[in-house]
Design a protein around this nucleic acid. Sequence first.
DNA 1: AGCACGCCGACT
DNA 2: GTCGGCGTGCTC
Length: 812
Amino acid sequence: MKYAEVAVNSPIAGPRSFCYSIPFHLNCRIGQAVWVPFGSKTLQGLVIELTNQPSVEDTKEIIGLISPEPLLSPAQIELALWICHYYHAPLFDTVSLMLPPGFERKLETFLCLAADSADMPDLTVEQQNLMDYLKNDRGDVNLKEIERKFGKRKAQKIVRDLVQNKVITKYERLAKPKVGPKIQSFLKLELNNGSITDIVVRLRDKGAYKQAEVIEFLAAKHGPVLLAEIKSTVHCSQSVIKALVDSGSVSLDAIEIKRDPLAHVKVMKDSPPVLTQEQERVWEEIRNCLIRSADNKEHPVFLLKGVTGSGKTEIYLKAIAEALSHGKQSVCLVPEIALTPQTIERFMARFPGQVAIFHSGLSLGERFDEWYRIYQGEFKVVVGPRSALFSPVSGIGLIIIDEEHEWTYKQSDKSPRYHARDVAVKLAELTNAVVILGSATPDIESYYKAEKGQYRLVELRERVTPRGVSPLPEVEIVNLCDELRAGNRSLFSSSLKKAIDEVLARDEQTILFINRRGSANFVQCRDCGFVPTCSRCLVALTYHLAENRLRCHHCNFVREVPRTCPGCGGTRLRFIGIGTQKVEMEARSLFKKARILRWDSDVTTRRRAHEQILAKIKNREIDILIGTQIIAKGLDLPQVTLIGVINADTGLNLPDFRSAERTFQLTCQIAGRAGRGLMAGRVIVQTYNPEHYAIQAASRHDYESFYRREIEYRRQLGYPPFSQMARLTYSHTNNIVCHEEADRMREMILSEKAKQGLSDLRTIGPAPAFIPRVRGRYQWHIVVCGSKLHTFLSDIVFPKGWTIDIDPVSML
DNA sequence: AGCACGCCGACT
DNA sequence: GTCGGCGTGCTC
């Protein structure tokens, strides 16, 4: 007898697998999806191990296979186990990352009348109601429908009793799949039974006019025609088609159509640039490793540090090509926000027909098809956001993470709370792949690892523009405190205003950047200071100019702007804070003749809005572009000569030890965008903290000095990379219960620390989370710093309501 | 989550 | 005595 360890899709399964016996007739392999009995249910599971000895005394049998072939490779299963263990996530959640889109299917319970339901015992009124309902519907009824009609609890009881009395029976049926291959049917003429005219005449004689019409339609089209097209133009039913197919006059073929999200992208001609000396040197080093890794000799992690415009992407493309030449496939992770048509076209031009691209705009069907095309080996290169790491590439030889410092690589909102960069390094270790982490401003922890020799640092210092090698633009810091003292209360300092005027006079373009994080518009009473907040989430409501209403950016609660202050009854309620809309309004009044466009997430949710805006800028239909993060990342606007940062330091005072690092990264990124074209660029950064080391270093494009300062601060306070961090959050509807449970957990952790004799472990908090209440639930968190935290925490029991975030990127 | 088992109060 | 409330524990 053989046994299988199965990851079961049940919320109560947790990190463990369940042991099942394999019936002798099943050819069950590792990585296969199976149906298994679990409690009273039948659930989906994935085989993660085969054994000869069961791990528990009695086992149930696997019911059947879901997939004929394994869906996950052994390396993927090992990776899933690692993620599950390291990040304290349920095993099936981690396995599920790697399964095809739409894999999860549920069984629905149906009710029908029992075969011998004639001799019924006495029924209650409610039981009789349900019986009548079943009889009226004649067919089988979904249990969900009954529950909706009778109420969940009541329905369960009635049904249980009726089933026990053998009046009705219950059975399970697989719900319709959410997605599958797209099949289209085509009709084709078969002229074995004489000419078209003969057939048409014969059909008319029989009185089959609709059939004749279909034949004539097909004859006019010359070739196979979509079944749906015929049905809609000739207005005939399936029976007409069936009659024609049965008589042999036409044939019906079902063809699988691949949904291709890139079908509309026109592939440009690829013209790889000649590498500069510096690029050549870096490329040689990476290339040598790729050649050696092909013989499994070594597989290092490169940290490619290169300023914006230094040619990192070209190195990626060359590395992918090199991997391809050794028969190896590549995965390239890109922040979602940088997945612009520009990026996509560049990859497609270099590797036509070989690139799969994932992005948030794909439909479930498109994802499904992309997954299977990668699975079947049709694509050799996968480009996408963090989840692309789990696509079913076989023979992976190279993993690239562009902008590796981006926090979007950490999945914080749902389990598994994994960091794609760290998972990529683990995956590379399991598959002997080379990793390239690319960034202009590497994550402090990555750079520390490079310094310690764990990663190999390679650098591109020169910026290459159409003018040749060019220096980074000069950055001018404007002290907003001085402006206030001089009586200027506008969003625009006098130097920024002057600079914009000059640029407009020269008929050049300006970008204005707003860091919106933590600085959204809100309403405040000028008399008592009251700020309208969301009663469920306790965060300030954001004012939306366009709809003139207040909106909670956590639960989406909407309310009107109060006319009088609910706190003191006063009428002097004012709008505070800066948003793109406010900057836009002020810019319009200051620069009357300028053509101004606002670009933020509200605008870009529309499909293809990206391209339209880019085109407008390229065609010089815009003088001033106002935007948020979106314009800071990866977008190449060569003719822009001035960049103004309206508020560099809004993120500086957030309660998060990484706030300085983020401010530095963002400011550097924006500054790097200027002057990439033929004209030199200028950058103006407005701030209330002109002396802050993050702002100072960013203005000089000086990563080294920022790093020295930041790493020293981390060392002193024992923050990562000098310790590991975990954030434990407890959520409950009652704030006091929440606080008490958090206190109890802290005690628990400290006593466990004492028991294990650990000295380097410490706790911070508990404290209410930055957003103290979300959707009516209070949140308290404890931060734990130490080493090997994931191992330590696995000894602690976390009751329901706790979430564990290992290596959190944000405390907010 | 859902379904067993089991231990007490209201009723026949 | 018995039906049925929901507290506790388990699911290979």
